[in-house]
Structure formats: structure tokens, C-alpha cells
Design a binder for these strands. Sequence first.
DNA 1: ATACGAGATTGAAGCGCTTTAATGAGGCGC
DNA 2: GCGCCTCATTAAAGCGCTTCAATCTCGTAT
Lengths: 358, 358
Amino acid sequence: MAKVTIGDVAREAGVALGTVSNALNHPEKVKPDTLKIVNEAIRKLGYAPNQSARLLAGGTNPTFGLVVPQLNHGLSLQIASGASTEAQRQGYGLLVATANGEDALEQRYARYFMGTQMSGVLVQASHTHAHGAPTQFGHTPIAYLDMTSDAPGYFVAADSRRQGSLIADHVVSLGAHHIAVIGDAAAPQDALRLEGIRSTMELHPEVALTVIAEGAGNMAADGFELGIRIARMDVAERPDAIIGLTDVLATGAIAGIVEAGLAVPGDIAVAGCDGNPLAWSGTVPLTTCAPMGYEMGRRGIHHLVEQIKARKSGMRSDAADENHQELVRPFMLTRESTVGRSPVTATDAIGLNLGTFL
Amino acid sequence: MAKVTIGDVAREAGVALGTVSNALNHPEKVKPDTLKIVNEAIRKLGYAPNQSARLLAGGTNPTFGLVVPQLNHGLSLQIASGASTEAQRQGYGLLVATANGEDALEQRYARYFMGTQMSGVLVQASHTHAHGAPTQFGHTPIAYLDMTSDAPGYFVAADSRRQGSLIADHVVSLGAHHIAVIGDAAAPQDALRLEGIRSTMELHPEVALTVIAEGAGNMAADGFELGIRIARMDVAERPDAIIGLTDVLATGAIAGIVEAGLAVPGDIAVAGCDGNPLAWSGTVPLTTCAPMGYEMGRRGIHHLVEQIKARKSGMRSDAADENHQELVRPFMLTRESTVGRSPVTATDAIGLNLGTFL
DNA sequence: ATACGAGATTGAAGCGCTTTAATGAGGCGC
DNA sequence: GCGCCTCATTAAAGCGCTTCAATCTCGTAT
């Protein structure tokens, strides 16, 4: 039960230490007979190679590391899920570390991953640096998720602008005459979504657009008050649709509207923009536009693998110092808050089965 | 940018290699002035210790590993979340690996964790060995989650029996006269839940109990058919409450009952037993009883830490060969399928904020 | 001044493994 | 039957770090 080393195996098998190593790592280099003897000895002794020694001596670690700020958060989970699946498909393992909201830990884990010779590291942006400069790490391939930047490196993020325009499209197609957007576009993503909404609305000059830049704290309570306020407006000037720049605001608005005695979507349709998984579970399930974390995870791993390949084939630095940015197309989740009661939509069901949206 | 070693730092700082190591691992042994110089050099060079070398040379790895069968599964997520929080609280890190349903991978990750000198490993049972014998691994402290066994070792699982009795209690307290249990108690947990239900019902002889042992495949479709069948029974002998041994069955039953033209919970109340997160999102949110994975994760880490402490203080083997089993008390989630429409219950809201039930 | 000892620093010895160069063992043509 | 080439195996050289015994440096007591 004590630790068995490669030397013990060698002795047991009556071969040299190096042969055992070869049997393990380059079985084609060792005569079949010998191989069998060695494997037998390994089995008999219950030998398991010491990873640290392997790596130190130059072995490879076909594993990626993923650092997320909060594991119990929808997007992180989707990312982890997608990254894990893709990594496995490519013949790599994936280890997930969660910083539980502490930035310092985030750094520590990232360094730890570097230190264990990981083949690559994926970092999901924490809110503190969602648009900041990426931390640089030695020589390990790295990609950032849910983060945009002009700095050199690989970045995969949701297409926030398109979230806005898809939602706006949807609401317009519902026949809205006057759309109110609620939310203080302080966060960069929020601003992008607003941009998306505006650009779509420009194509529909017949539909009125009011932007109410409040609710900076992104609290449901803010949405609630806004909902009440809007519901109590004169029918003539009352918007017949609300788009919340965040789902939290939108959810609050629904509650406010209902509180004020109006119906959603009967009197006012409401939609969110950011695909918060909880949005599904409110009194009135919220129409929103999911950022597709699963896909982001997959793409992140893809970029890592590409970097590895590039390095192997000696193509140095060409791409290394460039800025690579990829926007993942978001996915509309049409639910009751805009289209009224209906059985669970097919897209939701599919998404749930895939673990994509949960 | 190339790899920086401790030697480089030593040279930069003008001290011996060993001093840098001390500065890193035993700062109290090094003069404050020297410490400052060394740290400066570390910062300047962007040095990150090579974990492999550290561990190989006898350093410690204050990190736990967690292996889960599927990350995008409610319980695993809760476990990861709880384990991560508790590990952090105890001064350890946590790395999560998901086997994506492949048993072989599960083993590989576990061995990998051993091989990297992890301080301990947590393994969530995959369905294939939910009640099997634990795999044994060298000398690393280990604990199994969501798994019961008589073998030596540490096991933390949900108290399935109590899930059953809590649900039965709830349904009885609602004033049910005739309860039907649906589900083929093939899986061990299901059987335990049924036991729990039965033991509670013995205390209420005035309430009739029918057990319909069907739906072995645990498909929503099975529940659907059962729901229809029950809904179409003569009112006289029709149960006024259904408990599904699994939430999937219960959810299906709700759909069936509604399809048959009856109301839930108006005509027939329905409850699940296993706290499936999706149960919240059906047409009628399902009353169920959550297994509290978060708590399981916490307790698992706790046991690991205890094992480590015991080893340190030299208390050998006493407890090592014993069977330690802990059942985590489940948590009732009372929702519309039994109590009718109401605002989101406080418990749900709290649970969601904690990431506990999602 | 001198000797002593606590505290700080150094240097060298591995940790277990992969790798590479060197050695050994056969198999072939002549 | 000899030399040469190929394929297997071996032995030794680190990988970067921690640790520990040995050495050095002072401040203090004599």
C-alpha cells in the first residue's frame, strides 16, 4: 500500500527502469513479450505513476484547466459543460476550479494550472475584469471566456449586441407599437445590448422607443417599481412592451405590472436580454436571449487546441501576439412573458436535455 | 516569457536557491529584508513555482479533488458548490473533474488526483456503483458522496428514507384520504423512499395507500400514462394524492392528469421525492424533497479534513478500517402541485440565492 | 577584545520519472 | 564465418523544487 515506484516495478519485472517507462509511454518501442511481463508486474504491485515526477521529467499533461468565478451560476455551468465535452472529444481532460467570487483565488488557480503543466487554461471573466486586460501567464496556451478585449490573446464572448437586436426583432414582430427599454446601460454588455436594440429599431421607425435609464443596481425591486410606474401610465402613452436590459430587471417589471393590475403579456409584453436561467421560473416565464455558454466553452477549448497545434508545427508567434475575438451567436428563448401561456416550448425542452440553458 | 525557475529568481535576488524556497514556503524563517528582495525578484520575473517539482520534492498540495459523473446535473452542481465553499473555508482548494458519464474516465481522474498528491479526493457515485464497493486508492484520504456501503471508508448520502416520510407526512397533512405511490422501486434509493413512505403511513391507518409498481424506466411518458389511468378511475376509488418515487414520474403524472381533464392539485395532489431541479419548471411546479447536495459536499470535505488531521496526529488506522456513514437530512420543497398556486415560496427563493437547489 | 550562540543563509542530496546516448543482441549478405 | 546494420534494452543525466545539515553572521556577554 505504501508508494510503489517505477523502480519497484522494474525490479519485479527483472528489467531496467527505463524499459518500464517505455512500456508505459511508448509501448511500441518495447518487445511484446517484455511488455506483457512489465504490465503483469504493474498490475501485481498496483503501481500508479507519480504525476509530478512524470511532468517534471518532461511528460505531457493532456488536461485543460478552467477557472470560473462562480460554479453555481448558469453561464459558468454551461461553459464548464461545453468545455468538458469538447476537451474529452479532443482527447484531453478538464479540471474546473471555482474562485467563489474571490479574485485572488482566481489568480491562484490560474497559476496553479500553469504550474501543473496543463496543456492550456480557460478563464471565465469575473465581473471585475469583464472588459479589462487579460492577465498574462508564462507560456501556457490560454483563452478568455465571456470577455472582450483588444489585447493580444483569444477571447470568446456572447454577442451582446445581437442579443439586443434579436429581442427587439421579436418584440416588434409581436406587433408592439411602443417599446420601453429599462435599465441603466452602465455595464458594457448592457450598453451593447442597448446598441443592438437601437439598431434594430432604426429599421422600424413606426414603432416608438423609450429608454428609461434606471435600475443601475440591477435589483428586481428596481424593475418592480419601473413596472408599476409604466403600468400606471395613461393608456395612450403607455408602452405595450418592455425590454429589460437584464432579466432581473425584466422579472421585477413583470411583478410590478401584475401588482398594478395589468396582465403580462396581455396588456404589456415583457422580455429580458441575458438568458438568466432563473428567468424561466418566475410567475410568468420570461422571454429572453441566452448567451450559449455551452458553445463558448466548446469554442474556448477549440482555440486552445489550435494554439497547441500551431506551436507544435513550429508556427511561432505569428498569431500569438494578435487579438482573436469570437462572438457566439445567442439563442432566443421565447416564453410566456411575450407570447402568452403555451406548453413548454420545444427549444426549452431541447436545451434542458442538453444541459445547455440550465 | 520562457519558463522562470527558482534559480533565476535566486540569481536576480542575489541569494541562494534555498532561500527563495524558504521565502516561498516558510517566510518566517527568512529575514524581512531578504524576503522583500526575493518577493521583488519574483514579481519582476513573473515567477510561478513548478507544482510538479514542488510536489515531487515533498511539498504539499492543499487541494482536494472532486470527481462527478455529470457536471450539468443538479446534485453534482450542488455538491461541487458545497465542497468548494467548505474547502475554501478550511484553507484548501478544490478541483472538479467530470467524467461525462464514462466510468473509465471517473477512474482515470481519481488516479490522476492521487498522482498529483492531492490532499484528498471526493467521489460522487455514478449510477453504476451507487451502492457498490468503493474503489480503493493508495494512501490518499477519500470520501464517497451520494453512495452508501458497508465497506470501510467514508460515505455521505441523502437520507432517502426520510425523503419518503417527509413527503408522505406532507401529503397526509394536506388531508389526503387515499394516496397512490407510483414507481418501480428497483433502484435502491427508490426502495428506501418507498420504505419511508410506508413507515409514515403506518402512523396514519385512516389514509389508504396504493402502491403501483410501474414505470421502471423512469420515463415521463410512463408517469403520463399512470396519471391518465388514475385520473380516469371512479371517483370513489380514485386516489386524491399521488407520490412519485421519482420527480420525473410525478411530473409525467401531472401532465397525464391535466390531459385527462382533472386539476392538480384541485382533484389530485401530486408530489415527487427526489428534488430534481427541473421539477420546479413544469406547468405545475412540483412539490418534492431535495437531497441537499450542497450539504453533502460540505460534509464530504469535512470528513477529508478529519482524516488528514487524524493522520497528522499519528492516530493510525483505528478509524481507517471502519465504515463511516452519514445521512444528510433532505429538505422539503412545497410547491403548487400540492398546495396550489401561490407566490414563489420563501424556501425556494432562499435556496436559489444560495445556489442550493438549482 | 574575545568567545559564544541564536538566527539567517547556503549547498547538496534527492523526490520519481522521461529521455537520450550508449550498449547489447540478433539477423543478413558476402 | 565475419562484419555491419537494426532493434531492444540499459544506464545515466537531469527536470525544478524542498529539506536538512553545514556554514556563516552578528549581537551579546565576558
